[in-house]
Nucleic acid binder design. Sequence first.
DNA 1: TAGATTGTTAATCGATTAACAATC
DNA 2: TAGATTGTTAATCGATTAACAATC
Lengths: 205, 205
Amino acid sequence: MEKKKIPDIIIGRLPLYLRALNRMAANGSAISSSKELGEWVGISAAQIRKDISQFGEFGKQGTGYNIEFLSRKIREILNIDRIWDVAIIGMGDIGHGLTEYQGFRNRGFQVTLVFDNSPEKIGTKIGDLAVQDTADMVDTINKTDVKIAMIAVPADHAQTVADELLKTGVKAILNYAPIRINVPDNIRVQYIDPATHLQWMTYYL
Amino acid sequence: MEKKKIPDIIIGRLPLYLRALNRMAANGSAISSSKELGEWVGISAAQIRKDISQFGEFGKQGTGYNIEFLSRKIREILNIDRIWDVAIIGMGDIGHGLTEYQGFRNRGFQVTLVFDNSPEKIGTKIGDLAVQDTADMVDTINKTDVKIAMIAVPADHAQTVADELLKTGVKAILNYAPIRINVPDNIRVQYIDPATHLQWMTYYL
DNA sequence: TAGATTGTTAATCGATTAACAATC
DNA sequence: TAGATTGTTAATCGATTAACAATC
């Protein structure tokens, strides 16, 4: 692989650049500068250039970046020049909403497996997908090559679900449960907790 | 007011400490150390102590922190020793899910106003709340003292909604639309975009 | 050519960690 | 008292910004 070690924080900004580039393209633009891109994402032009230059020389002096080209490069870097299958565990409001969410499709992801442990929900359909029993989750996921899962169960079940996921090929977890989960270093975890974001802002009110 | 200037990144960690403390309390613990708390949130003990000490001396040498006491202090600091009313704009899957979300109640927030611009949705009920017309949003919010709003409309309407919110008393926005919005410096904005989080992780897969 | 903008280096800034005296 | 853990200072580490030669 021989991949140069890139700081995690830079990787985290690439999706924001990509999002802005896609929108620029939708607006009919063909090229953009680090200055303009910086204004779109709220980051200095110098940082944009520094971040991008970690991966190659994708710009042109005096001109800027070709939006289509840079966009493709970032997709390649992030490994989203393909569609990833995703499993969701927990079909409460959050899991249900995520399953129906249309925003994943054109950004590299599709939900292919959904689980819940409640007898009333197992077997029901959400869109095209039948809700499956969480008790069978390990076996079910292991029949696929799903590497990404979202946890949307109550906080006190999140660690249990995470432990089970370790028995599958899942290597990336997006955790909506408001609790930290412990997993080995080779598993990536990201957290989304709206109350935490709100509490951050109330300090300033 | 005379509030010492605290780095924003420290404020952002307080909700995580609070979340862990609440869980410890629920487990029956009465005291905790920076070491233990650090393990719960995945942050070094030194940093926990440094962060907390910005606001006062809440611990006791040789013993640690009283969970109940520290928890109350953090709630006071974050201004969540009360319940904030919240408005949600956009009743698609995300907005609907947020409206029904039970996780806000005991963390300082309650949804009191929900808006949508589609005639089929206006007037329908979600739980106890009637969906109101986004066209009336400014007037409706201005009859209340709502200071927090969540935007859950499509990306191309987010900026318009944000501009309208500026005509109200809203000072904090949690934006679920996958686009950056431009607002004056005195308005706080936080972003939640699951696809962005997923794209961050695929780099490592 | 003149103007614009990249890629990159050096300087600055800020955040994290290590260490330890104070003290419960 | 002995052991533990805080609050804080100094050292380290890493990230951001400023500046500019290269060049389209």
